[in-house]
Amino acid sequence: MNKSKQQGMSIIVQTVARWTKGYIFLFGVYLTFYGHLTPGGGFSGGVVIAVTFVLLTLAFGKERALSKLGKVLASVLDCSGALLFLLIAALGILFGGAFFANFIEKRFPSANFRLFSAGNLPLCNISIAIKVGASLFMIFIILAVRRVVEINGKRKLISTEFFETPEKGKSR
């Protein structure tokens, strides 16, 4: 439709993406924060958060998405999410006496309107969501930047930008 614009898809897709991207992101955050009480949790929330950036990449091209969440920032977030998770687990040794011990007070049955009704589970969920969101976006962008082009009649696959080998999702 918009021939002058090389990046991205048609204006319909772009408009819908512009309207929905915030809500999708918020839904991911909701899944993450509420995951200890309902179905959901860090992994699903992180996937939905990553999907927001995937949508941005598809609709507007990768420059727009990378300007929101850069390669370096995504890598740092990826590792720091994992480190945060390990830190919470290690704090369990300090306060709870065992690795992964739930050291924050928890109530059963869960009292409504209490922030930490499930102990440190929301904290774990948040760190996992950071890790999964960043690393899934990285995987997508690294696999997506390659194009098949024809060079001297032979089909060849080149990467439009140099990226190293992708990180793999290790979190649970």
Partner: peptide
Amino acid sequence: NLSLFILIPLAAAFLIPVVSR
């Protein structure tokens, strides 16, 4: 503490990409 055998290498593995930039 047996969990140190998991904790230390994992922490180092994730610390390396952050710090060594």
